[in-house]
Design a protein around this nucleic acid. Structure first.
Length: 650
RNA sequence: GCUGGCGUAGCUCAACUGGCAGAGCAACGGAUUUGUAAUCCGUAGGUUCGGGGUUCGAUUCCCCGCGCCAGCUCCA
């Protein structure tokens, strides 16, 4: 008999050779039914795994993260089986689980079509119905190589070739399909079924563009129909929120073929939003003790040699221009310019910290294939700042930056934060002492803000540790916008210094930081986060006054002028059209408030207030309306979210 | 940059295997003076992404280029 320790601490004894399936069954029949795999001493294994020694055992169920991953992995194998049955000449390569689903890379003589996807999916469903057992077997490495070579699977043969000689490899069989795999897998194909194939894409063997291009099939898989439905719904929701679509519909911005890829045109409505964002940003930075800079978009290329960008960043830089006899460079970053300003004159320790901010537009060469709406562009504006400080000021500065960052992000409606701290990589500049001190300061600052963080050990840049903040949007997607980065390198390269208390020259520490990152990208995130329903303080048009007939024009004009004078972004719609028509039009433009004026309102000097979700706030006197809209604007509260997007197209 | 898909009116999309390039919405003109998500009638709108080729004839087939989309790659 062997002792088995369960997750709740209980210890039970079973005969040697008991399978995990039997353990699960002994605990409860419900658990046995939900089980997809198990874990023995922390290692994921199949349900058929036989216990030979005492161990800590837990059962992995379909509804857990680990269980889902196994289901996705097994579904990927199911897809490979279907593909092999339909297209026997296809060779299999690898097929892992990924976030929300799985993929499998095939070597196929032609690209798969959407029709193929349908066929494959149908075959997969047949295989699920057949409920084929999925069995594991061990084979010596060389025997496995021989087996796959005989099957003509050269990619698999190559993979096994990388496994050290003399080791055993595991194979999984389901029906006639056999695949090299570490596992674990669900016990039979009948355990799968809540999946959908999504797309075909090219991918390179081993991710190397010099290698053969493979056909990658993507799919999603879930523990139950509810999970699948919810995910497909989220995909549809994301499409409805697509900032490229909303950007055109709401006349916010455009990208133009004539001008070139990745270059953003902010239209009047988008520019209004940007203006509000920038004003907010400036106010916050003024209050936080920042000064503002404006620096050129172009400079002598030598500067970029000094900064080191030419050595390690030139692939992302546009080609230089020749100006007179000199080479000039469009800037991909703002930092060298801020350093040049720092270097003007002698700096005293009394001046530090210096906090210098700039909404600096930079240009980076991105490969044409990666450009994507506002999310990936070639010209964008960073809400950049550089802080020059003494080593003993690092912690306080980082803490202040984090506080400012979180306050900013919260104002834009983001509540979930994931903080990553990246520490010293193998190759780096700067002394051990400064790295240790700086990293400890970053950790401390995060803790002081009452935040948890994840450490990416060795993930920092060579010039200093960094903190990244990821936000979660309204439909659960994560975005990294904010970054705080210590730099021990640039001050060195530009040889900047300040005079310390001791009268000696000292090297300042430089902190790079951006809260929104790129204004363009952040705007894109905001559009999708709010699904175009900007809160009142951001909305390009905050209210539209609309009349029933032209008899109401005079009062409508007075209302409009009053709101305009109060600083609100208001427009009027005096067109000779039915109210229903006007309401529909402005609702589709997602205007937060509609102010409807007819005989009654004119008589009583009120407006009938309607929210963009269709909510009727009744008649509101003009003075009350002004204070109400101003309060909502000033407090930057977000009322009237997107709600059910379907309602917009009744 | 690479692979694949796509490119028709401002937008969404039609046009059987090559045979007169169309609809709805939007725009514009007129009528309608209207109470909480679409009033009616009319007008105009096109180098079918660009260039070349095959053909009696190309939106359709072929080649080259550009752009977009998905993915890969890249990401200080």
């Amino acid at each position: 008999m062997i002792e088995v320790r369960l997750p709740d601490g209980a210890v039970r004894t079973f005969p040697e050779g008991t399978t995990l399936r039997e353990v699960a069954g002994a605990i409860g029949s419900r658990l046995a039914k939900a089980a997809v795999a198990g874990s023995v001493d922390g290692r994921a294994v199949d349900l058929e795994y036989r216990l030979t020694t005492a161990a800590a055992v837990s059962v992995i169920t379909a509804d857990s993260e680990a269980g889902l991953e196994i289901i996705r992995h097994s579904t990927s194998h199911l897809m490979a089986q279907a593909v092999k049955e339909l297209f026997p000449a296809t060779q299999v390569t690898i097929g892992p689980a990924v976030e929300n689903g799985f993929y499998y890379d095939f070597a196929h003589d032609r690209p798969f079509t959407t029709e193929d996807l349908g066929l494959i999916e149908a075959r997969m469903r047949e295989l699920v119905k057949a409920d084929l057992p999925i069995t594991r077997e061990l084979l010596p490495r060389d025997a496995a190589i021989a087996l796959f070579r005989e099957m003509g699977e050269i990619f698999k043969t190559e993979i096994i070739g990388d496994i050290p000689e003399g080791e055993e490899v595991s194979l999984y069989r389901q029906g006639n399909f056999v695949d090299l795999c570490r596992g674990p897998h669900v016990p039979s194909t009948g355990r799968l079924g809540h999946f959908k194939l999504l797309s075909v894409a090219g991918a390179y063997w081993r991710g190397d563009s010099r290698n053969q291009q493979l056909q990658r099939l993507y799919g999603t898989a879930w523990a139950d129909e509810k999970g699948l439905k919810a995910y497909l719904h989220q995909l549809a929701e994301a499409e409805k929120r697509d900032h490229r679509r909303l950007g055109r519909e709401l006349e916010l911005f455009s990208l133009q073929e004539e001008a070139g890829g990745g270059l953003v045109f902010w239209h009047p409505m988008g520019s209004r939003v940007r203006h509000v964002i920038e004003e907010f940003w400036k106010q916050q930075h003024r209050e936080a003790g920042y000064e503002f800079l404006h620096t050129p978009h172009l400079a002598n290329r030598e500067l970029w040699r000094t900064s080191g960008h030419l050595d390690f960043y030139s692939e992302s830089m546009f080609n230089p221009l020749t100006v007179d006899a000199e080479q000039y460079q469009v800037r991909p970053m703002n930092c060298p310019f801020h350093i040049l300003i720092f270097r003007q004159g002698l700096r005293s320790y009394r001046e530090l910290p210096l906090r210098w901010a700039e909404l600096g537009t930079v240009y980076r060469y991105e490969m044409s294939g990666v450009l994507h709406g506002l999310f990936r562009v070639r010209g964008f504006t960073q809400d950049d700042a550089h802080i020059f400080c003494r080593a003993d000021q690092i912690e306080a500065e980082i803490e202040a930056i984090l506080e400012l960052t979180l306050a900013t992000l919260r104002t834009f409606g983001f509540a979930d934060f994931q903080i990553n701290l990246s520490t010293r990589p193998a190759k780096s500049v700067g002394s051990d002492a400064i790295w240790e001190k700086a990293t400890a300061a970053l950790r401390q600052a995060i803790a002081r803000q009452g935040l948890d963080h994840v450490e990416d050990v060795g993930g920092g840049a060579f010039y200093g540790p960094k903190i990244d903040v990821k936000i979660t949007d309204a439909i659960g997607r994560k975005w990294q916008c904010s970054t705080v980065q210590l730099d021990f390198n640039l001050p060195e390269r530009f040889d900047i210094s300040y005079i310390g208390e001791d009268g000696q020259r000292h090297r300042p520490i430089m902190i790079h930081r951006a809260l929104m990152g790129s204004l363009e990208r952040f705007f894109g995130v905001l559009i999708e986060h709010y699904a175009g329903h900007f809160p009142l303080w951001l909305a390009p048009v905050q209210a539209v006054v609309l009349t029933i007939t032209e008899a109401h024009d005079a009062w409508a004009e007075e209302v409009r002028r009053t709101l305009l004078a109060a600083g609100l972004r208001v427009e009027s719609d005096l067109r000779n059209a039915k109210v229903g028509y006007k309401i529909r039009e402005h609702t589709l433009k997602k205007v937060p408030y509609l102010l409807i004026i007819g005989d009654r309102e004119r008589q009583e000097r009120t407006v009938s207030l309607r929210g963009r979700q269709g909510k009727d706030f009744g008649a509101v006197p003009l003075a009350e309306l002004v204070s109400r809209l101003l309060t909502e604007t000033r407090t930057r509260t977000a009322t009237q979210g997107p709600g059910q997007l379907q309602e917009e197209t009744p």
